[in-house]
Amino acid sequence: MSLMRINSPLTMGTREIADMIRKNHADVRRSAERLAQRGVIGGGQPLADTPVRNEQNGQIYQEYRLNKRDSLILVAQNCPEFTAAIVDRWQELESLASAGQIAIPRTLPEALRLAADQAERAERAEAVLQIVKPRAEALQRLSESDGSLGVREAAKSLKIKQTELVAMMLTRNWLYRDSQGRLQAYSKALESGYMEHRAVKIERSAGRQVAGQPMITAKGMARLSQIINKLSREFAA
Rank of each mutant, 00 (worst) to 15 (best):
S2V: 04
R5F: 06
I6R: 13
S8N: 07
S8H: 09
S8I: 00
S8D: 09
P9F: 00
T14Q: 02
E16W: 02
A18W: 02
D19V: 03
D19T: 03
I21N: 04
K23L: 09
N24V: 09
D27I: 05
D27C: 04
V28D: 03
E33V: 10
A36H: 03
Q37W: 02
R38N: 14
G39V: 06
V40G: 01
G43A: 14
P46V: 08
D49F: 06
R53F: 05
N54S: 10
Q56A: 13
I60L: 15
I60E: 15
Q62G: 06
Q62E: 00
E63M: 08
N67T: 11
R69M: 10
L74M: 08
C79I: 09
D88K: 12
W90M: 07
L93K: 00
S95K: 13
S98I: 01
P105H: 09
A111W: 12
A111R: 12
D117E: 15
E120S: 10
R121Y: 06
R124Y: 02
A125M: 04
A127M: 01
V128P: 00
V128I: 07
L129Q: 11
I131N: 01
A136F: 02
A136L: 13
L139D: 00
D146I: 04
G147D: 13
S148P: 03
S157K: 09
L158F: 00
K159V: 03
Q162K: 12
E164D: 15
V166N: 11
M168A: 01
T171D: 14
R172Q: 13
N173Y: 05
N173K: 10
W174G: 03
R177E: 12
D178E: 02
D178L: 08
S179G: 13
S179H: 00
R182K: 13
S187L: 06
K188R: 10
A189T: 03
L190D: 02
S192M: 11
G193A: 09
G193I: 03
H197D: 15
R198D: 06
V200E: 05
V200H: 03
K201A: 13
K201V: 09
I202D: 08
S205M: 10
A206N: 14
R208S: 11
V210M: 06
I216K: 01
T217N: 07
T217L: 03
K219M: 07
G220R: 01
L224M: 05
R233I: 13
R233C: 00
R233H: 01
A236R: 10
